[in-house]
Amino acid sequence: MDKMKVLIVDDDEIIAGLAKIILDNMFDNEYIFKIKTAANGEEGYKLSLDFKPDLVLTDIQMPGKNGIEMVRAIRQHSPEIKTIYMSGEWSKFQTPLQEEHTMHQAYFLKKPFAISELKQLLCEA
């Protein structure tokens, strides 16, 4: 079985690291994910060009290119990319997130989130 490639993008190293640990140990230690991390939207976009992830797990609010802008740029090359957006503050991004959900079936996690919530979205994505 091919490993699902996941790109985790978050300017908070602790959250990115925890998300990676969760994915690495999610399904009875069967390593079904190949994971790369990036610290911001610009780095995530550049990394996606070579890595070609199946799914992007991204924070929205980051310095420079935010998560929504980054995913839109990635979609220029990979229109079918699956996305899970994370944020503690949804109100500023409600309209573009609704568009993402409608047009691309994007998923959302409200920070802080439970491991079970992340697992459920990964199974759905």
Rank of each mutant, 00 (worst) to 15 (best):
M1E: 00
M1L: 06
D2N: 05
D2C: 00
M4K: 15
K5N: 06
L7W: 12
V9A: 05
V9H: 05
V9G: 01
D10K: 00
D10R: 00
D10C: 01
D12Y: 00
E13Q: 04
I14Q: 05
I15F: 02
L18S: 07
A19V: 14
K20D: 10
I21K: 11
I21N: 13
I22W: 10
I22R: 02
D24Y: 05
M26R: 06
F27S: 02
F27L: 02
F27I: 02
F27W: 03
N29S: 14
N29Q: 14
Y31E: 07
I32Y: 00
I32S: 09
I32D: 01
F33G: 01
K34D: 15
K36Y: 09
T37I: 12
T37D: 04
T37H: 03
A38Q: 02
A39D: 12
N40M: 03
G41Y: 12
E42I: 11
E42F: 15
Y45K: 06
K46W: 04
L47Q: 09
L49G: 07
K52R: 06
L55V: 10
L55N: 00
L55Q: 03
L55K: 11
V56P: 11
V56D: 04
T58M: 09
D59N: 07
I60A: 12
I60P: 09
I60Y: 13
Q61F: 11
M62S: 05
M62C: 07
P63L: 10
G64H: 13
K65N: 12
K65Y: 11
N66S: 07
G67F: 06
I68H: 11
I68A: 10
E69V: 06
M70L: 15
R72N: 15
A73P: 08
A73W: 07
R75Q: 11
R75C: 03
P79L: 05
P79Y: 10
E80W: 07
K82C: 00
T83C: 13
I84T: 06
Y85D: 13
Y85R: 10
M86Y: 07
M86T: 15
G88T: 08
E89L: 11
W90D: 12
K92S: 13
K92C: 09
F93A: 14
Q94H: 12
Q94W: 05
T95L: 09
L97S: 03
E99C: 08
H101W: 08
Q105Y: 06
Q105N: 14
A106V: 05
A106W: 02
F108K: 14
L109F: 05
L109W: 07
K110F: 03
K110G: 02
K111W: 04
F113I: 09
I115S: 01
I115V: 11
I115H: 01
E117T: 09
L118E: 04
Q120E: 12
Q120A: 12
Q120W: 06
L122S: 06
E124G: 02
A125E: 05
